[in-house]
Amino acid sequence: MKVVSRSVGCLRKIDFADALFRTKGVVPQTSVTFEDPGALGIACVSYHGPVHTFKPANQTYHGIGYRVSGAQTIRIDKPRSFPHGTGRSGMTAIVPATEESAWLSEGPHEMVHFYLASPLVGEVAAEIYGVDGSDVEIQEAAFHIDESIARYAMVFQQRLRDPEPVTELELNAIAHLLSAHLLRRYSNLACRPMSRVDQKLSSAELRTVTDYIEAHLDSALRLSELAAAIGMNQYRFARAFQATTGDSPHKYVMKLRITHAQDLLAASKLSLGTIAATVGFSSQSHMTLAFQRNLSITPGRYRIQTGKFDRDECSGAF
């Protein structure tokens, strides 16, 4: 059996071979591990043949599987009478951290797997329901249609094929969205009223966090440190920041990096690589992709169009 996997995650203590349901031969082609305790792992996997997969019980993550395409998958650790035990393209299955599961896929197929850390789900529950996170129970859900998870899965399937690196701000954003979604639809809290969590940041809070971003723009900013700058938990901060600025933290930081890069391109003869590092892009190619997608121009062409320098004046700076 040949397995091709593309994965990214911030699950420090979950080995990806284990996170991929201990499927023999599944080795991610790419993976990213962040310094903070992990909130979410994502893997896009293509199975080129029939395969048995297994998720052990009592893990630290909830499993969410979305079937993109291919042969059907059958839940084999349940009786034949188990409802919705057969999965086809476009279907989602939820396996709580406490549960084990075993599956048989009958032929080639493609999946997107999310591995959502249980502690994060508890933190989000405490924020939006005002309960002790340890009281949260995520309920198992056999194959079914979930349009929200399908949308997240397809976005990240495409994102993992993208040469632009996935940032921790992006992963934390989707982790919090998935946590809230699981709680609203698949938990023992689903029928409870939610607390109001969409208030805006005060002027002082916004100034503090934007000043922090400016001061640390050259580093790999984390949602946890931005929230900590104003003494707020990550879920509330992400919601309040977007309600205040109109942008997610990730999008705001990306726009700011592009703006600062534009300023340096127009006012200095620094090389593109130096400018990319100065404003926090992971590489010159990362900055080039960001410019092309947001401004429809490369950094080198942008520098020429400013009219302040010609190519001879900035030898090596293009």
Rank of each mutant, 00 (worst) to 15 (best):
G65E: 03
V68R: 01
H250W: 10
M91Q: 15
F318P: 03
G130K: 01
H109M: 02
A102V: 12
H286V: 15
D162E: 04
I74G: 00
L183T: 00
S224A: 08
L11V: 09
A261N: 07
L183P: 02
S7D: 04
E110I: 05
L120R: 04
T274M: 12
A97E: 09
D218K: 11
A266D: 09
V279D: 06
P108E: 14
I258P: 07
D135C: 03
G280A: 15
R293A: 11
L223V: 11
L171H: 08
D218C: 01
R67C: 02
R239C: 14
F21S: 04
W103G: 02
Q305V: 15
S134M: 09
R196G: 04
R88T: 02
V124Y: 10
G38E: 13
Y66P: 01
S283M: 09
S46T: 10
Y152A: 06
F54V: 08
V26C: 15
P165L: 09
A43W: 04
A175R: 06
V45Y: 01
I213D: 07
A102Y: 08
S5W: 02
R236D: 12
D18V: 09
V131K: 11
S271L: 03
N233Q: 12
E110T: 03
T53H: 00
L183K: 00
A317L: 12
A141T: 11
L270I: 08
R12K: 10
L40W: 05
V26S: 07
D247C: 11
H250M: 00
G9W: 03
E99Y: 14
C10Q: 14
T244S: 15
I230K: 12
R22M: 06
L120T: 02
S283I: 12
A39I: 08
T23N: 06
M287I: 05
T30S: 00
V136R: 11
Q139C: 14
G280T: 11
G300M: 08
P83L: 00
L116F: 14
E214K: 05
L171F: 12
T278M: 04
R301E: 02
E110F: 02
D77A: 02
P108F: 04
S224L: 00
T98D: 02
Q242F: 11
K269F: 07
L223M: 13
S105Q: 08
L270C: 11
H176P: 11
G85P: 02
A267F: 15
S285R: 08
L256H: 12
L289Q: 08
